[in-house]
Amino acid sequence: MGLAAREARLTERGVSGMDATMDTTGEVGRIPIHKAKSVGGVSDPLFVAALWASGIFVLILLGLIIAQLFIGGFPALQEFGLDFIWTASWNPVTEKFGALVMVYGTLLSAIIAVVVALPLSFGIAFFLTEIAPQALKRPIGVAVQLLAAVPSIIYGMWGFFVIAPLMAQYVQPPLIEFLGPIPLLGVLFQGPPLGSGMFTAGLILAVMIVPFITAMFVETLESVPPMLKESAYGVGATTYEVYKNVSVPYGSTAMVGAVMLGLGRALGETMAVTFVIGNATRLSASLFAPGATIASTIANEFPEAAIGSLKLTSLLQLGFILFVISFIVLALSRALVRSRLD
């Protein structure tokens, strides 16, 4: 029998007895039972109802958000049809709107972030679980977690005022010079070194998602049964070999889930990206070119859109698309993480 059911049954039985005892300081017999029963009898169903109502509120909140975004963006869907997703133009003058540039920017910046964050997280998790002395483990773990606590807008300012100028001066010019001329691959590294753009946005996002991925990596790695690791050590494996061949494969499902969570976080990040991506609503092959994500476009253009305008409904439609993408990624992540823990 479940705990809840047992509690419910106990509650039903217990209501009157407890209150009668307390009200009469032990003289149970003198107080009519029905009178005492009414005290717990009213407040308990109320309390339980409040618990259920709050739980169900959380349950329907997500549906409400999705419904509002869909309804809000519906006029744009009517106007452009499903072509909205594949159309690359975003032109407020001719009122021709499409999501392709932003969807591309959202996915590309998030993928850059994951590609950069993944090795970092593997390394930091290895350090925290296998190398760090006990005394250092906690402070360093907390410091990494604090990176996740820094507000998004602070990353934006730091990226805009500190990182972007450094990228423009020291990082991008040599990359453009050496990688640009390579056939095919070079396309990614061409154009002027502006500092801001897709690449810089991806790097800032990487710093922001490392703490999330690392925390879940560490949690998973610490759940590896010591005996498995000891067996590997026993046959002479090095620390790294145990990590690579025992710990990581053991937790691989949950670790993929952790990476998906990082991806999901990066997809919807707004303020940090808005500061450094350059906000250009056109498609470019180069990673150094300015671009836009769904979130940055909404943040930038929403204030200029009039209520009921086609632009506003198109922005809401963009929001709906972002919600669908993040929902899929986050739901997958959760399924992978939970599947191993349960």
Partner: peptide
């Protein structure tokens, strides 16, 4: 749903 809301893009809550 709560786990999704925890990581869902905050700008969409604004919308």
């Amino acid at each position: 749903v709560n786990d999704i809301l925890l990581s869902a893009p905050s700008i969409l809550v604004g919308l």
